[in-house]
Design a protein around this nucleic acid. Structure first.
Lengths: 250, 250
DNA sequence: TCAAAAGTGTTGACGGTACACCCATGT
DNA sequence: ACATGGGTGTACCGTCAACACTTTTGA
Protein backbone atom coordinates (compact mmCIF):
# COMPACT_ATOMS: atom_id res chain seq x y z
CA UNK A 1 0.00 0.00 0.00
CA UNK A 2 1.58 3.29 -1.12
CA UNK A 3 2.35 5.81 1.56
CA UNK A 4 3.23 8.90 -0.42
CA UNK A 5 3.59 12.40 0.95
CA UNK A 6 0.59 14.61 0.27
CA UNK A 7 0.70 15.78 -3.32
CA UNK A 8 1.23 19.49 -3.68
CA UNK A 9 0.30 19.77 -7.32
CA UNK A 10 -3.03 18.08 -8.13
CA UNK A 11 -1.89 17.15 -11.62
CA UNK A 12 0.88 14.97 -10.27
CA UNK A 13 -1.36 12.68 -8.21
CA UNK A 14 -1.11 8.95 -8.92
CA UNK A 15 -4.13 7.60 -10.75
CA UNK A 16 -7.03 6.31 -8.65
CA UNK A 17 -6.14 5.55 -5.05
CA UNK A 18 -8.39 2.88 -3.53
CA UNK A 19 -10.79 5.41 -2.14
CA UNK A 20 -10.78 8.22 -4.63
CA UNK A 21 -12.99 10.38 -2.44
CA UNK A 22 -10.10 10.74 -0.04
CA UNK A 23 -7.87 12.29 -2.67
CA UNK A 24 -7.09 15.73 -1.32
CA UNK A 25 -7.10 17.46 -4.67
CA UNK A 26 -9.69 15.58 -6.62
CA UNK A 27 -12.44 18.13 -6.23
CA UNK A 28 -12.46 21.91 -6.35
CA UNK A 29 -12.84 23.40 -2.91
CA UNK A 30 -15.63 25.59 -1.59
CA UNK A 31 -14.63 28.92 -0.17
CA UNK A 32 -14.59 29.04 3.63
CA UNK A 33 -15.53 32.08 5.66
CA UNK A 34 -16.39 32.98 9.23
CA UNK A 35 -19.23 35.34 10.19
CA UNK A 36 -19.81 36.86 13.61
CA UNK A 37 -23.07 37.77 15.29
CA UNK A 38 -22.05 40.30 17.94
CA UNK A 39 -24.63 41.02 20.60
CA UNK A 40 -24.66 43.91 23.03
CA UNK A 41 -27.12 45.58 25.41
CA UNK A 42 -27.77 49.26 24.89
CA UNK A 43 -28.46 51.81 27.62
CA UNK A 44 -32.20 51.26 27.38
CA UNK A 45 -31.76 47.52 27.80
CA UNK A 46 -32.43 46.53 24.25
CA UNK A 47 -30.55 43.70 22.64
CA UNK A 48 -28.40 45.00 19.80
CA UNK A 49 -26.46 43.36 17.02
CA UNK A 50 -23.41 44.73 15.24
CA UNK A 51 -23.62 45.04 11.45
CA UNK A 52 -21.38 46.38 8.75
CA UNK A 53 -22.33 47.92 5.47
CA UNK A 54 -20.87 46.23 2.41
CA UNK A 55 -18.84 48.30 -0.02
CA UNK A 56 -17.98 45.62 -2.53
CA UNK A 57 -20.09 43.14 -4.47
CA UNK A 58 -22.13 41.20 -3.98
CA UNK A 59 -24.83 42.95 -1.94
CA UNK A 60 -23.15 46.35 -2.22
CA UNK A 61 -24.59 48.82 0.26
CA UNK A 62 -26.48 46.15 2.18
CA UNK A 63 -25.92 45.44 5.81
CA UNK A 64 -24.26 42.18 6.76
CA UNK A 65 -22.58 40.35 9.60
CA UNK A 66 -18.89 41.06 9.98
CA UNK A 67 -16.80 38.22 8.61
CA UNK A 68 -14.44 37.08 5.90
CA UNK A 69 -12.31 34.33 4.50
CA UNK A 70 -10.41 31.90 6.70
CA UNK A 71 -6.66 31.86 6.07
CA UNK A 72 -4.64 28.69 5.81
CA UNK A 73 -2.49 29.46 8.81
CA UNK A 74 -5.21 30.33 11.32
CA UNK A 75 -7.79 28.31 13.20
CA UNK A 76 -11.49 29.08 12.80
CA UNK A 77 -11.65 30.80 16.18
CA UNK A 78 -8.64 32.90 15.28
CA UNK A 79 -10.20 33.86 11.97
CA UNK A 80 -13.38 34.97 13.71
CA UNK A 81 -11.45 37.09 16.20
CA UNK A 82 -9.31 38.61 13.46
CA UNK A 83 -12.27 39.58 11.30
CA UNK A 84 -14.03 41.04 14.29
CA UNK A 85 -11.01 43.13 15.16
CA UNK A 86 -10.31 44.23 11.60
CA UNK A 87 -13.86 45.15 10.73
CA UNK A 88 -15.23 46.52 13.98
CA UNK A 89 -12.38 47.06 16.42
CA UNK A 90 -13.95 44.65 18.88
CA UNK A 91 -11.48 42.49 20.81
CA UNK A 92 -11.34 40.30 23.89
CA UNK A 93 -14.91 39.13 23.94
CA UNK A 94 -16.83 35.98 24.66
CA UNK A 95 -16.91 34.13 21.34
CA UNK A 96 -18.46 30.76 20.61
CA UNK A 97 -19.00 28.78 17.45
CA UNK A 98 -22.66 28.68 16.49
CA UNK A 99 -23.26 26.60 13.38
CA UNK A 100 -21.86 26.10 9.91
CA UNK A 101 -23.99 27.25 7.01
CA UNK A 102 -23.48 25.44 3.75
CA UNK A 103 -26.44 25.91 1.44
CA UNK A 104 -25.12 25.58 -2.08
CA UNK A 105 -26.53 28.90 -3.26
CA UNK A 106 -25.94 31.01 -0.18
CA UNK A 107 -23.32 33.07 -2.01
CA UNK A 108 -24.28 34.10 -5.56
CA UNK A 109 -20.66 34.27 -6.75
CA UNK A 110 -19.37 30.87 -5.87
CA UNK A 111 -19.79 28.03 -3.42
CA UNK A 112 -18.91 29.43 -0.01
CA UNK A 113 -19.41 27.71 3.33
CA UNK A 114 -19.48 29.88 6.42
CA UNK A 115 -18.72 28.98 10.01
CA UNK A 116 -20.85 31.30 12.13
CA UNK A 117 -19.86 32.53 15.58
CA UNK A 118 -21.69 34.61 18.11
CA UNK A 119 -20.08 37.05 20.49
CA UNK A 120 -21.28 38.84 23.61
CA UNK A 121 -19.86 42.25 24.42
CA UNK A 122 -20.34 44.87 27.01
CA UNK A 123 -21.31 48.00 25.12
CA UNK A 124 -19.70 50.33 27.65
CA UNK A 125 -16.25 48.83 27.29
CA UNK A 126 -16.33 48.48 23.53
CA UNK A 127 -16.89 51.75 21.80
CA UNK A 128 -16.71 50.91 18.12
CA UNK A 129 -13.49 51.85 16.50
CA UNK A 130 -14.14 52.77 12.91
CA UNK A 131 -13.21 49.69 10.94
CA UNK A 132 -9.75 49.73 9.40
CA UNK A 133 -11.22 50.06 5.96
CA UNK A 134 -13.61 52.90 6.92
CA UNK A 135 -16.66 50.83 6.08
CA UNK A 136 -19.78 51.72 8.07
CA UNK A 137 -20.37 49.82 11.30
CA UNK A 138 -23.42 50.21 13.50
CA UNK A 139 -25.59 48.66 16.18
CA UNK A 140 -29.14 47.59 15.28
CA UNK A 141 -31.92 46.26 17.44
CA UNK A 142 -31.44 42.51 17.15
CA UNK A 143 -35.06 41.76 16.34
CA UNK A 144 -35.44 44.61 13.88
CA UNK A 145 -32.64 44.86 11.34
CA UNK A 146 -32.65 45.96 7.73
CA UNK A 147 -32.56 43.15 5.15
CA UNK A 148 -29.23 41.38 5.39
CA UNK A 149 -26.85 40.11 2.74
CA UNK A 150 -26.42 36.39 1.95
CA UNK A 151 -28.23 34.14 4.45
CA UNK A 152 -27.24 36.40 7.32
CA UNK A 153 -30.81 36.78 8.52
CA UNK A 154 -30.97 33.05 9.10
CA UNK A 155 -27.65 33.16 10.91
CA UNK A 156 -28.82 36.01 13.12
CA UNK A 157 -32.03 34.16 13.87
CA UNK A 158 -30.16 31.06 14.88
CA UNK A 159 -27.80 33.08 17.05
CA UNK A 160 -30.76 34.61 18.85
CA UNK A 161 -32.24 31.19 19.43
CA UNK A 162 -28.97 29.92 20.83
CA UNK A 163 -28.51 32.95 23.05
CA UNK A 164 -32.01 32.68 24.49
CA UNK A 165 -31.52 29.01 25.24
CA UNK A 166 -27.98 29.13 26.52
CA UNK A 167 -28.37 32.14 28.77
CA UNK A 168 -30.67 29.98 30.88
CA UNK A 169 -28.26 27.15 31.56
CA UNK A 170 -24.85 28.81 31.36
CA UNK A 171 -23.54 31.95 33.06
CA UNK A 172 -22.96 33.88 29.85
CA UNK A 173 -25.36 36.73 30.48
CA UNK A 174 -22.68 38.47 32.53
CA UNK A 175 -20.69 38.95 29.33
CA UNK A 176 -23.24 41.52 28.24
CA UNK A 177 -22.93 43.58 31.42
CA UNK A 178 -20.15 45.73 32.83
CA UNK A 179 -17.88 43.98 35.31
CA UNK A 180 -19.78 45.55 38.19
CA UNK A 181 -23.53 45.47 37.91
CA UNK A 182 -26.69 45.64 39.99
CA UNK A 183 -29.15 42.82 40.41
CA UNK A 184 -31.75 44.92 38.63
CA UNK A 185 -29.49 45.22 35.59
CA UNK A 186 -29.03 41.48 35.57
CA UNK A 187 -32.74 40.91 35.89
CA UNK A 188 -33.53 43.30 33.04
CA UNK A 189 -31.08 41.40 30.88
CA UNK A 190 -32.94 38.18 31.45
CA UNK A 191 -36.26 39.85 30.91
CA UNK A 192 -35.17 41.42 27.63
CA UNK A 193 -33.69 38.26 26.21
CA UNK A 194 -36.35 35.94 27.58
CA UNK A 195 -39.10 38.29 26.51
CA UNK A 196 -41.07 38.24 29.74
CA UNK A 197 -41.16 39.81 33.15
CA UNK A 198 -39.56 38.12 36.16
CA UNK A 199 -40.56 38.50 39.80
CA UNK A 200 -37.94 40.61 41.57
CA UNK A 201 -37.83 38.77 44.88
CA UNK A 202 -37.73 35.34 43.34
CA UNK A 203 -35.00 36.35 40.90
CA UNK A 204 -32.82 37.75 43.65
CA UNK A 205 -33.29 34.78 45.94
CA UNK A 206 -32.38 32.36 43.19
CA UNK A 207 -29.35 34.10 41.76
CA UNK A 208 -27.89 34.92 45.18
CA UNK A 209 -28.42 31.43 46.51
CA UNK A 210 -26.27 30.06 43.68
CA UNK A 211 -23.26 31.77 45.22
CA UNK A 212 -21.76 32.92 41.93
CA UNK A 213 -21.83 36.62 42.70
CA UNK A 214 -19.37 38.54 44.85
CA UNK A 215 -21.10 41.45 46.48
CA UNK A 216 -18.77 44.43 46.26
CA UNK A 217 -18.17 47.18 48.80
CA UNK A 218 -19.52 49.62 46.32
CA UNK A 219 -22.82 51.05 45.28
CA UNK A 220 -24.22 52.45 42.08
CA UNK A 221 -23.26 56.07 41.29
CA UNK A 222 -25.12 59.08 40.00
CA UNK A 223 -28.70 57.89 40.25
CA UNK A 224 -31.46 60.06 41.69
CA UNK A 225 -32.74 57.43 44.05
CA UNK A 226 -31.38 54.92 46.49
CA UNK A 227 -28.12 53.56 45.07
CA UNK A 228 -28.06 49.82 44.44
CA UNK A 229 -25.52 47.31 45.66
CA UNK A 230 -22.95 46.32 43.02
CA UNK A 231 -22.04 42.71 42.33
CA UNK A 232 -19.50 40.91 40.19
CA UNK A 233 -19.66 37.45 38.67
CA UNK A 234 -17.01 35.18 40.18
CA UNK A 235 -15.76 32.71 37.53
CA UNK A 236 -13.64 30.83 40.05
CA UNK A 237 -16.58 30.07 42.29
CA UNK A 238 -18.47 28.98 39.20
CA UNK A 239 -15.67 26.60 38.23
CA UNK A 240 -15.50 25.18 41.71
CA UNK A 241 -19.25 24.67 41.94
CA UNK A 242 -19.38 23.12 38.48
CA UNK A 243 -16.73 20.61 39.41
CA UNK A 244 -18.80 19.55 42.39
CA UNK A 245 -21.89 18.87 40.31
CA UNK A 246 -23.60 22.24 40.32
CA UNK A 247 -25.62 23.23 37.26
CA UNK A 248 -26.45 26.84 36.48
CA UNK A 249 -30.15 27.22 35.74
CA UNK A 250 -32.37 30.25 35.58
CA UNK B 1 -20.32 54.59 -3.23
CA UNK B 2 -19.42 52.42 -6.25
CA UNK B 3 -21.93 49.74 -7.17
CA UNK B 4 -20.08 47.47 -9.56
CA UNK B 5 -21.28 44.06 -10.70
CA UNK B 6 -19.55 41.12 -9.07
CA UNK B 7 -16.23 40.41 -10.75
CA UNK B 8 -16.17 37.03 -12.43
CA UNK B 9 -12.47 36.84 -13.00
CA UNK B 10 -10.45 37.86 -9.96
CA UNK B 11 -7.61 39.12 -12.12
CA UNK B 12 -9.83 41.73 -13.70
CA UNK B 13 -10.83 43.28 -10.41
CA UNK B 14 -9.93 46.92 -9.94
CA UNK B 15 -6.77 47.36 -7.90
CA UNK B 16 -7.27 47.05 -4.16
CA UNK B 17 -10.96 46.97 -3.33
CA UNK B 18 -11.55 48.73 -0.06
CA UNK B 19 -11.71 45.47 1.80
CA UNK B 20 -9.31 43.12 0.08
CA UNK B 21 -10.20 40.24 2.39
CA UNK B 22 -13.48 39.90 0.56
CA UNK B 23 -11.77 39.03 -2.70
CA UNK B 24 -12.95 35.49 -3.37
CA UNK B 25 -9.71 34.22 -4.79
CA UNK B 26 -7.14 36.10 -2.83
CA UNK B 27 -6.21 33.23 -0.55
CA UNK B 28 -5.76 29.52 -1.10
CA UNK B 29 -8.68 27.56 0.30
CA UNK B 30 -8.63 24.97 3.07
CA UNK B 31 -10.03 21.56 2.24
CA UNK B 32 -13.53 20.96 3.57
CA UNK B 33 -14.76 17.60 4.78
CA UNK B 34 -17.65 16.17 6.77
CA UNK B 35 -17.26 13.47 9.42
CA UNK B 36 -20.06 11.46 11.00
CA UNK B 37 -20.28 10.05 14.50
CA UNK B 38 -22.88 7.29 14.21
CA UNK B 39 -24.29 6.00 17.47
CA UNK B 40 -26.25 2.82 18.01
CA UNK B 41 -27.34 0.62 20.93
CA UNK B 42 -26.28 -3.00 20.85
CA UNK B 43 -28.29 -5.93 22.16
CA UNK B 44 -26.71 -5.70 25.59
CA UNK B 45 -27.61 -2.03 25.83
CA UNK B 46 -24.18 -0.64 25.27
CA UNK B 47 -23.66 2.55 23.32
CA UNK B 48 -21.76 1.83 20.12
CA UNK B 49 -20.08 4.01 17.52
CA UNK B 50 -19.48 3.15 13.88
CA UNK B 51 -15.88 3.33 12.65
CA UNK B 52 -14.11 2.57 9.41
CA UNK B 53 -10.58 1.38 8.89
CA UNK B 54 -8.47 3.60 6.66
CA UNK B 55 -6.77 2.07 3.65
CA UNK B 56 -5.01 5.13 2.31
CA UNK B 57 -2.65 7.63 3.86
CA UNK B 58 -2.50 9.30 6.18
CA UNK B 59 -3.23 7.05 9.17
CA UNK B 60 -3.27 3.87 7.06
CA UNK B 61 -4.84 0.99 8.97
CA UNK B 62 -6.14 3.20 11.75
CA UNK B 63 -9.76 3.47 12.64
CA UNK B 64 -11.56 6.71 11.90
CA UNK B 65 -14.99 8.28 11.63
CA UNK B 66 -16.68 7.87 8.26
CA UNK B 67 -16.45 11.05 6.22
CA UNK B 68 -14.95 12.74 3.21
CA UNK B 69 -14.72 15.84 1.09
CA UNK B 70 -17.67 18.11 0.46
CA UNK B 71 -18.51 18.56 -3.21
CA UNK B 72 -19.31 21.90 -4.75
CA UNK B 73 -22.83 20.96 -5.75
CA UNK B 74 -24.05 19.50 -2.43
CA UNK B 75 -25.00 21.02 0.90
CA UNK B 76 -23.16 19.99 4.06
CA UNK B 77 -26.05 17.83 5.22
CA UNK B 78 -26.17 16.13 1.83
CA UNK B 79 -22.44 15.49 1.95
CA UNK B 80 -22.75 13.88 5.37
CA UNK B 81 -25.57 11.62 4.22
CA UNK B 82 -23.72 10.69 1.05
CA UNK B 83 -20.53 9.74 2.87
CA UNK B 84 -22.49 7.74 5.38
CA UNK B 85 -24.24 5.83 2.63
CA UNK B 86 -21.12 5.29 0.55
CA UNK B 87 -18.89 4.18 3.36
CA UNK B 88 -21.22 2.27 5.64
CA UNK B 89 -24.52 1.66 3.83
CA UNK B 90 -26.41 3.57 6.51
CA UNK B 91 -29.33 5.67 5.22
CA UNK B 92 -32.42 7.45 6.52
CA UNK B 93 -31.22 8.28 9.97
CA UNK B 94 -31.43 11.11 12.43
CA UNK B 95 -28.52 13.38 11.54
CA UNK B 96 -27.55 16.67 13.13
CA UNK B 97 -24.62 19.02 12.74
CA UNK B 98 -22.35 18.90 15.76
CA UNK B 99 -19.44 21.31 15.45
CA UNK B 100 -16.84 22.39 12.95
CA UNK B 101 -13.25 21.45 13.69
CA UNK B 102 -10.60 23.70 12.28
CA UNK B 103 -7.30 23.28 14.10
CA UNK B 104 -4.57 24.20 11.64
CA UNK B 105 -2.66 20.95 12.08
CA UNK B 106 -5.54 18.52 12.38
CA UNK B 107 -4.66 16.95 9.01
CA UNK B 108 -0.93 16.34 8.49
CA UNK B 109 -1.17 16.64 4.71
CA UNK B 110 -2.79 20.00 4.28
CA UNK B 111 -5.16 22.43 5.91
CA UNK B 112 -8.49 20.68 6.17
CA UNK B 113 -11.54 21.88 8.07
CA UNK B 114 -14.17 19.33 8.99
CA UNK B 115 -17.83 19.81 9.72
CA UNK B 116 -18.79 17.05 12.15
CA UNK B 117 -22.24 15.47 12.34
CA UNK B 118 -23.68 12.92 14.67
CA UNK B 119 -26.27 10.34 13.76
CA UNK B 120 -28.53 8.04 15.77
CA UNK B 121 -29.52 4.70 14.32
CA UNK B 122 -31.48 1.71 15.37
CA UNK B 123 -29.08 -1.21 15.14
CA UNK B 124 -31.79 -3.72 14.26
CA UNK B 125 -32.88 -1.87 11.14
CA UNK B 126 -29.42 -1.04 9.90
CA UNK B 127 -27.28 -4.05 9.28
CA UNK B 128 -24.02 -2.73 7.89
CA UNK B 129 -23.60 -3.13 4.19
CA UNK B 130 -19.96 -3.60 3.35
CA UNK B 131 -18.74 -0.23 2.17
CA UNK B 132 -18.57 0.27 -1.57
CA UNK B 133 -14.81 0.20 -1.50
CA UNK B 134 -14.59 -2.93 0.70
CA UNK B 135 -12.93 -1.04 3.51
CA UNK B 136 -13.60 -2.49 6.99
CA UNK B 137 -16.51 -1.10 8.96
CA UNK B 138 -17.37 -2.04 12.52
CA UNK B 139 -19.15 -1.04 15.70
CA UNK B 140 -17.09 -0.18 18.79
CA UNK B 141 -18.13 0.60 22.32
CA UNK B 142 -18.38 4.37 22.26
CA UNK B 143 -16.34 4.90 25.40
CA UNK B 144 -13.67 2.36 24.47
CA UNK B 145 -12.37 2.72 20.94
CA UNK B 146 -8.93 2.10 19.49
CA UNK B 147 -6.85 5.25 18.83
CA UNK B 148 -8.51 7.24 16.08
CA UNK B 149 -7.07 9.07 13.09
CA UNK B 150 -6.84 12.87 12.90
CA UNK B 151 -8.67 14.60 15.76
CA UNK B 152 -11.48 12.09 15.60
CA UNK B 153 -11.19 11.23 19.29
CA UNK B 154 -11.99 14.83 20.13
CA UNK B 155 -14.93 14.77 17.73
CA UNK B 156 -16.26 11.57 19.24
CA UNK B 157 -15.89 13.01 22.71
CA UNK B 158 -17.81 16.09 21.77
CA UNK B 159 -20.53 14.02 20.12
CA UNK B 160 -20.91 12.01 23.33
CA UNK B 161 -21.19 15.19 25.33
CA UNK B 162 -23.83 16.55 22.99
CA UNK B 163 -25.79 13.30 23.00
CA UNK B 164 -25.79 13.07 26.79
CA UNK B 165 -27.00 16.64 27.10
CA UNK B 166 -29.53 16.67 24.30
CA UNK B 167 -31.18 13.37 25.10
CA UNK B 168 -32.41 15.00 28.28
CA UNK B 169 -34.21 17.92 26.69
CA UNK B 170 -35.19 16.62 23.26
CA UNK B 171 -36.96 13.41 22.27
CA UNK B 172 -34.08 11.99 20.28
CA UNK B 173 -33.49 8.87 22.35
CA UNK B 174 -36.24 7.11 20.42
CA UNK B 175 -34.02 7.24 17.33
CA UNK B 176 -31.80 4.63 18.95
CA UNK B 177 -34.66 2.20 19.56
CA UNK B 178 -36.84 0.15 17.24
CA UNK B 179 -40.14 1.74 16.31
CA UNK B 180 -41.94 -0.37 18.91
CA UNK B 181 -40.24 -0.58 22.27
CA UNK B 182 -40.92 -1.31 25.91
CA UNK B 183 -40.61 1.19 28.73
CA UNK B 184 -37.78 -0.87 30.16
CA UNK B 185 -35.82 -0.57 26.92
CA UNK B 186 -36.33 3.17 26.99
CA UNK B 187 -35.24 3.36 30.59
CA UNK B 188 -32.09 1.32 29.93
CA UNK B 189 -31.23 3.69 27.12
CA UNK B 190 -31.33 6.64 29.47
CA UNK B 191 -29.39 4.74 32.11
CA UNK B 192 -26.66 3.76 29.69
CA UNK B 193 -26.22 7.19 28.19
CA UNK B 194 -26.65 9.04 31.45
CA UNK B 195 -24.38 6.63 33.26
CA UNK B 196 -26.60 6.06 36.28
CA UNK B 197 -29.55 4.05 37.43
CA UNK B 198 -33.08 5.47 37.34
CA UNK B 199 -36.00 4.52 39.55
CA UNK B 200 -38.44 2.43 37.54
CA UNK B 201 -41.67 3.81 38.93
CA UNK B 202 -40.61 7.42 38.72
CA UNK B 203 -39.36 6.99 35.17
CA UNK B 204 -42.59 5.41 33.97
CA UNK B 205 -44.77 7.99 35.67
CA UNK B 206 -42.82 10.84 34.16
CA UNK B 207 -42.54 9.59 30.60
CA UNK B 208 -46.16 8.46 30.40
CA UNK B 209 -47.49 11.68 31.85
CA UNK B 210 -45.86 13.60 29.00
CA UNK B 211 -48.27 11.97 26.58
CA UNK B 212 -45.72 11.42 23.83
CA UNK B 213 -46.07 7.66 23.67
CA UNK B 214 -48.81 5.69 21.97
CA UNK B 215 -49.40 2.44 23.78
CA UNK B 216 -49.83 -0.27 21.15
CA UNK B 217 -52.14 -3.29 21.18
CA UNK B 218 -49.10 -5.47 21.18
CA UNK B 219 -46.74 -7.03 23.64
CA UNK B 220 -43.14 -8.09 23.53
CA UNK B 221 -42.45 -11.46 21.84
CA UNK B 222 -40.23 -14.40 22.63
CA UNK B 223 -39.19 -13.57 26.16
CA UNK B 224 -39.21 -16.16 28.92
CA UNK B 225 -41.08 -14.04 31.37
CA UNK B 226 -44.09 -11.78 31.41
CA UNK B 227 -44.25 -9.93 28.09
CA UNK B 228 -44.09 -6.15 28.29
CA UNK B 229 -46.41 -3.64 26.72
CA UNK B 230 -45.07 -2.07 23.54
CA UNK B 231 -45.10 1.68 22.92
CA UNK B 232 -44.28 3.97 20.03
CA UNK B 233 -43.14 7.58 20.05
CA UNK B 234 -45.75 9.84 18.49
CA UNK B 235 -44.01 12.75 16.70
CA UNK B 236 -47.31 14.47 15.94
CA UNK B 237 -48.29 14.64 19.56
CA UNK B 238 -44.85 15.96 20.30
CA UNK B 239 -45.22 18.71 17.69
CA UNK B 240 -48.62 19.66 19.03
CA UNK B 241 -47.44 19.78 22.62
CA UNK B 242 -44.36 21.76 21.68
CA UNK B 243 -46.46 24.37 19.91
CA UNK B 244 -48.49 24.82 23.07
CA UNK B 245 -45.44 25.50 25.24
CA UNK B 246 -44.48 22.01 26.36
CA UNK B 247 -40.80 21.26 26.94
CA UNK B 248 -39.46 17.74 26.91
CA UNK B 249 -37.31 17.13 29.98
CA UNK B 250 -36.04 13.97 31.55
C1' DT C 1 -41.95 -24.12 41.22
C1' DC C 2 -38.58 -21.18 40.07
C1' DA C 3 -36.51 -17.35 37.68
C1' DA C 4 -37.01 -13.08 35.54
C1' DA C 5 -38.91 -9.08 34.49
C1' DA C 6 -43.57 -6.33 34.41
C1' DG C 7 -46.32 -3.47 36.63
C1' DT C 8 -48.12 -0.41 40.25
C1' DG C 9 -48.92 4.25 44.90
C1' DT C 10 -47.75 6.87 48.74
C1' DT C 11 -45.18 10.00 51.42
C1' DG C 12 -41.97 13.55 52.71
C1' DA C 13 -38.76 17.08 51.17
C1' DC C 14 -37.77 20.64 48.33
C1' DG C 15 -38.08 24.20 45.11
C1' DG C 16 -40.97 27.30 42.40
C1' DT C 17 -44.40 30.83 42.28
C1' DA C 18 -47.32 34.35 43.77
C1' DC C 19 -47.69 38.34 46.23
C1' DA C 20 -47.05 43.96 48.90
C1' DC C 21 -44.84 47.04 51.60
C1' DC C 22 -41.22 50.04 53.65
C1' DC C 23 -36.64 52.24 52.80
C1' DA C 24 -33.06 55.26 51.00
C1' DT C 25 -31.80 58.89 48.07
C1' DG C 26 -31.81 62.94 45.06
C1' DT C 27 -34.53 66.68 43.25
C1' DA D 1 -42.60 66.04 50.07
C1' DC D 2 -42.44 63.46 46.26
C1' DA D 3 -40.74 60.40 42.83
C1' DT D 4 -37.92 56.57 41.85
C1' DG D 5 -36.17 52.38 42.27
C1' DG D 6 -33.86 49.27 46.26
C1' DG D 7 -34.59 45.80 49.13
C1' DT D 8 -37.00 42.16 51.82
C1' DG D 9 -40.38 37.18 53.72
C1' DT D 10 -44.06 33.96 53.71
C1' DA D 11 -47.46 30.58 52.33
C1' DC D 12 -49.13 27.47 49.03
C1' DC D 13 -48.59 24.07 45.65
C1' DG D 14 -46.62 21.02 42.49
C1' DT D 15 -42.76 18.16 41.36
C1' DC D 16 -39.11 15.02 42.50
C1' DA D 17 -37.02 11.26 45.07
C1' DA D 18 -37.24 7.36 47.86
C1' DC D 19 -39.09 3.11 48.57
C1' DA D 20 -41.30 -2.89 48.05
C1' DC D 21 -44.38 -6.02 46.78
C1' DT D 22 -47.54 -8.71 43.61
C1' DT D 23 -48.30 -10.49 38.91
C1' DT D 24 -47.36 -12.84 34.71
C1' DT D 25 -45.01 -15.96 31.89
C1' DG D 26 -41.91 -19.51 30.07
C1' DA D 27 -38.57 -22.90 31.14
Amino acid sequence: MPVDPAPVDPVSVDPAPIDATDDLRQYPRPGLTVDCVVFGLDVDDRLKVLLIQRRIPPFVGQWALPGGFVRLEESLDAAARRELREETGVTEVFLEQLYTFGRVDRDPRDRVVSVAYYALVNLRDHTLRAATDARAVAWFTATDTPPLAFDHSAILHQALTRLRAKIRYAPIGFELLPEKFTLTQLQRLYEVIGGQAIDKRNFRKKILKMGLLRSLDEREQGVSHRAAQLYAFDPQRYEALTRSGFNFEL
